[in-house]
Design a protein around this nucleic acid. Structure first.
Lengths: 239, 239
DNA sequence: ATCGCTGTTTGATGCAGATCAAACTCGGTG
DNA sequence: CACCGAGTTTGATCTGCATCAAACAGCGAT
């Protein structure tokens, strides 16, 4: 399950990363053609199944990734097992903590995903040489900081109903296919994961979902597929 | 009360910022002598009283600051008045959101403080020209991100008692004068502010403080001055 | 001193969400 | 098909924190 396993960089075939050449991803967009070529020689595109741990909490990291497809959750767990999701990342986000060897959180694929994996040492060097890349990662860090703080407000001050509505709004906003007002999307998270993101139990999440359904705010096609007839209505509940 | 008032930069006397020359602060440590001189010509050291709003939520910001002394709280408030503190900043932290015109949160002096104020346009230019400054601000953003995520765990998954212990631990860690195991410090926050940081009410904060006192974990010399006989004991409660 | 104001503590009661428990759904498997 | 197990929903009850209410402490102004 460990993406960092040595065969990735040593025994694996370092295939060119076509997506990166196409300038997807936070990292590749900021590089020169020469750098991109070098990065491609040492990077590898990987498909990972839902639930795969990409980075372990407390472990040394030897690589960074770009998310090319799918959703990755960032998790913190306490010694007694209590758990909190502290961020959701979507393509084309960057995963990894520049400059610091040890990760204070775990990153896990929430859905099946494709990621583009770079050796840490190489990317650290490129960051140091490329102000534009530094800037690009700085931007992402600030974006994540805003998201984290917005979520602190949700965790600290919103009711269970508002929390669930906020989560649905967040997912809907990041899901691609949207019509004018109505939106349909797949939830990348189970009820348990939603609970861990919102600081609630499974049961409370479930109850709030059915309350929203009974009020006509959402349709639950199945537990993972949601339709929102009117996004404004959902946003209103968010507060 | 508005620090950004025009007289600061137009009518005020732009005194040299001695602290910055001494390389305090996140910004000044990363600049060349020439840049520092230019920055000094346009920056101003200001004393602000506790409660002064430095940046208003939703307002355009025309300046950044370095905290030279005191504590600054970062706040988000909801339309209905519910409020969440999303960060505490101590000297020599940087205050302001690079690259973005409008602030999504307010910054307010929690204690009497001294800050070093720079015009936004000038510092933005220096960031663009100075990779080391970019790096320095990037580092701070990552540090704040780690802190925000750690606090998300506290908000989502810790009990009231653990929350209060976590806050005391946080403050104790950032307060300067510490003996080997025992620590004494001033709380920079009122009970109401602590509640807004922890997602609790004033009453619950107060009750948990007296519980910790009765158990001998802390001494409350007065409501703002705390002694922790054994930091390990406090840390244990934090979980 | 006495007043009045603001912040804090303490007490009594209520309720949102946790916990405990059981039924239901659905996709996979022998 | 029946069976199983994991995930989800629903119901009954409990509890930690919120809410409502009142006393208390500190402190500047008169």
């Amino acid at each position: 399950m460990d993406i960092a396993s040595s065969q990735v960089f040593e025994a694996g075939t370092p295939a060119a990363c076509r997506s990166c050449q196409a300038r997807h991803g936070v990292v590749c967009g900021a590089l020169s053609n020469g750098q991109l070529k070098e990065l491609n020689r040492h990077s590898l595109r990987r498909k990972v199944g839902a639930g795969t741990e990409i980075i372990a909490q407390g472990a040394e990291t030897s690589f960074y990734s770009n998310i090319m497809r799918g959703v990755v959750k960032l998790c913190k767990v306490m010694p007694d097992g209590r758990q909190q999701i502290v961020g959701l990342q979507f393509a084309p986000d960057f995963v990894g903590r520049p400059f610091v060897r040890e990760s204070t959180l775990s990153a896990e694929a929430a859905t099946d995903a494709e990621i583009c994996v770079f050796p840490r040492s190489l990317l650290d060097r490129m960051i140091a040489e490329t102000p534009e890349l530094q800037r690009s990662l700085h931007d992402q860090a600030l974006k994540e900081l805003d998201a984290a703080r917005e979520w602190m407000l949700t965790l600290g001050r919103r009711t269970a109903e508002e929390k669930v509505a906020s989560l649905l709004h967040l997912i809907a906003t990041h899901a691609e296919p949207q019509t004018a007002t109505s939106t349909a999307f797949d939830l990348p998270l189970s009820r348990a994961e939603i609970g861990d993101f919102l600081g609630l139990t499974i049961e409370t999440v479930s109850r709030q979902m059915t309350r929203l359904r009974k009020r006509g705010v959402i349709l639950i096609e199945n537990s993972r597929h949601i339709v929102v007839p009117d996004m404004d209505e959902l946003e209103r509940i968010t507060s």
